[in-house]
């Protein structure tokens, strides 16, 4: 049951990110400071950790994506490391 709820919320957020990536993101200059980008990272986090922890990880990553260092700004290669073996 809990798994189903988690899956449900995950897919909602996943769709929002998909929508953003496809329709909104191209309007702006490419500006993510990370690799993979925040939206990719968010999606991976949802897949890997489920709704609660995944959202938490994704939001934290977003909050780090700016140039102001003393507010936690950062950049670079920062993927979600998968414990499971995934294809595609």
């Amino acid at each position: 049951m809990l798994k189903k709820i988690s899956w449900f919320f995950c897919s909602i957020i996943y769709c929002i990110i998909k929508f953003y990536k496809f329709f909104l993101s191209p309007w702006f200059q490419p500006s993510c400071r990370f690799d993979p980008t925040c939206s990719e990272y968010f999606q991976d986090a949802l897949k890997e950790y489920g709704f609660l922890k995944g959202t938490y990880k994704g939001v934290i990553r977003l909050l780090r994506c700016h140039p102001i260092k003393w507010l936690g700004g950062s950049f670079g290669y920062d993927p979600i490391i998968s414990k499971r073996k995934r294809h595609g």
């Binding site: 500006s31 993510c32 925040c38 977003l62 700016h66 140039p67 950049f75 290669y77």
Partner: peptide
Amino acid sequence: QTEMMALYKREKVNPLSGCIPI
């Protein structure tokens, strides 16, 4: 991707404005 990041670091170009401002 890793090589790209390395290139950015080398050339000090990465500092994009980030996702937050957008």
